[in-house]
């Protein structure tokens, strides 16, 4: 006996199947097109783009645009390339992801295993914060960061991303721990383990998959953020803001090849994560939308 197949039981005729494959192929090209355009043109000299065909492979293969985007391109007024901004992003993302995931794990643990009156309301309020348009908090946030002396600094951005990230991380861990038998926690209580010990010894060892989901989601979101970076980045702007400055700069010739190389550089970390751990990325997306 074979296991129950997940595939549909619907059967289709040959012509229909051919059409389906054709449509899928067209969409594959559609989704790959921008990546191809960016990749190919970042490896050409500028003249080949302005004078030639965007879809053609490079006649002269060169990494000059990449080198320029990384270390010499004009970002704003400084010819620093994207390198310092890339570092800013790393310095911002690593602590923000770590803190928000740890806090989310603890919150999820409390909200499922130590339930109290009104806990659903507390969670609901935290959950709604994931979905607010962040424009609504921009003005007071700018003022608070100023008061705290964190305006325009990496710690300021870390604070912002932690604050607006814990809603999602709490959601992940809460849904995950909800499926974890509460009897285990009770057994551990009778065995004499306290609040933190139960978390550390009983729940944490089985939290691997959801921790990966949470880390990937937070990493992608924070790395890709533009609004907060542009509003509060000041002199410590993250990669996305720098890329936008590079592309939008109105001075001099438009170095398309450098723009494309920069775009790929900005996309590379999240793309790598997606390639390495795509399964968890999709799980995070789904958990964030279908809260079942």
């Amino acid at each position: 006996m074979s296991a129950q197949s997940q595939d549909t039981a619907v059967s289709t005729g040959r012509i229909t199947r051919a059409l389906i494959y054709l449509v899928l192929l067209l969409f594959t090209l559609f989704y790959l097109l921008p990546l191809y355009v960016m990749g190919v043109n970042s490896l050409k000299p500028l003249a080949e783009i302005t004078g030639g065909n965007m879809m053609a492979l490079p006649q002269i293969w060169t990494f000059d645009a990449w080198r320029s985007a990384w270390s010499t391109a004009q970002i704003g007024i400084e010819p620093t390339g994207l390198k310092p901004y890339f570092l800013n992003s790393i310095l911002m993302v690593v602590p923000a992801v770590t803190i928000s995931t740890i806090v989310g794990a603890l919150n999820g643990y409390v909200l499922t295993k130590w339930r109290f009156r009104g806990d659903t309301w507390v969670f609901g309020l935290m959950l709604f914060s994931c979905f607010i348009p962040f424009q609504i908090v921009l003005i007071p946030m700018a003022m608070v960061l100023g008061k705290l002396g964190l305006a325009g600094s990496v710690p300021g951005l870390i604070l912002v991303h932690v604050v607006y990230g814990i809603g999602f991380t709490t959601l992940y861990f809460r849904n995950y721990y909800a499926a974890f038998p509460t009897e285990l926690v009770r057994a551990a209580q009778i065995d004499g383990a306290g609040f933190f010990r139960i978390f550390w010894r009983i729940l944490l060892p089985v939290s691997g998959p959801i921790a990966v989901v949470s880390v990937i989601w937070q990493f992608t979101n924070i790395w890709n953020d533009f609004l907060f970076g542009a509003s509060f980045g000041g002199t410590s702007q993250p990669m996305t803001v720098a890329l936008n400055n590079l592309v939008q700069s109105s001075t001099g010739v438009k170095e398309y090849n450098v723009h494309f190389a920069g775009a790929i550089l900005a996309a590379l970390p999240t793309l790598l994560v997606y390639i390495v751990a795509g399964r968890y990325f999709v799980r995070g997306l789904m958990a964030g939308s279908v809260k079942g």
Binding site: Y31, P34, W223, F226, F260, A263, T270, V282
Partner: peptide
């Protein structure tokens, strides 16, 4: 089909 979701809107916009 899914990878664009991992990209920043800034990257998408540029492309």
């Amino acid at each position: 089909f899914l990878y664009p979701m991992a990209l920043s809107f800034i990257v998408t916009g540029t492309a």
